[in-house]
């Protein structure tokens, strides 16, 4: 009985705080994406010819997010029935966009307006501890081009 009450409290806490955090995060992501819209991302391996005389540098942006109890519970139930794990979809969507934003922020500060060959890596940090840690790291990296400083 106690276990069930604890479970319900955890679910409630997970739901309330998880949902609050998610809404806040999305608001901030959408706002910052507007802010850094000028920093262009290109997936191509080859930089555009007009950047040829610019300097380049490797930029990274990474995010580690953890899943709340409620989301994990729903995903656990989804494991039984199958189907779209929508509770993890928002989590990973947020993480990817946040990682790209951090990358863009750094590039912007360096004076770069173009990032070439953007790549994303995902790593789960739950190795060996399946049910205790439900975190993922998303790493975004790209080559940032910035104008040569005239001495």
């Amino acid at each position: 009985m106690v276990e069930i009450i604890i479970l319900l409290i955890l679910l409630l806490l997970g739901y309330v705080f998880g949902r609050m955090a998610e809404k806040r995060h999305y608001r901030s992501i959408i706002q910052r994406e507007k802010l850094y819209r000028d920093v262009i991302l290109i997936a191509s391996k080859h930089p555009p010819p007009e950047l040829i005389d610019q300097q380049s540098i490797l930029m990274t942006g990474s995010v580690v997010v953890s899943v709340d109890y409620f989301k994990r519970f729903i995903a656990g139930l989804r494991n039984l029935f199958g189907g779209r794990v929508s509770s993890y979809e928002t989590l990973l969507d947020r993480a990817r966009r946040e990682a790209i934003l951090r990358l863009k922020e750094q590039a912007f500060r360096k004076g770069s307006r173009m990032l070439v060959n953007i790549k994303l890596e995902t790593a789960s940090i739950s190795k060996g501890r399946k049910n205790t840690i439900g975190s993922v790291e998303i790493l975004a990296y790209a080559t940032a081009f910035y104008p040569t400083q005239i001495p």
């Binding site: 949902r19 507007k34 819209r37 989301k71 519970f73 729903i74 139930l77 989804r78 969507d93």
Partner: peptide
């Protein structure tokens, strides 16, 4: 060549469905 990153509409990679709805459906199934 022109490059741009247009604004991508929300709700492509995620769904607007309320999580509690999913919770109720799944747990009553269980």
């Amino acid at each position: 060549m022109q490059y741009e990153n247009p604004e991508i509409p929300e709700g492509i990679n995620t769904t607007d469905e309320h999580p509690l709805k999913e919770f109720v459906i799944l747990s009553s199934g269980i």
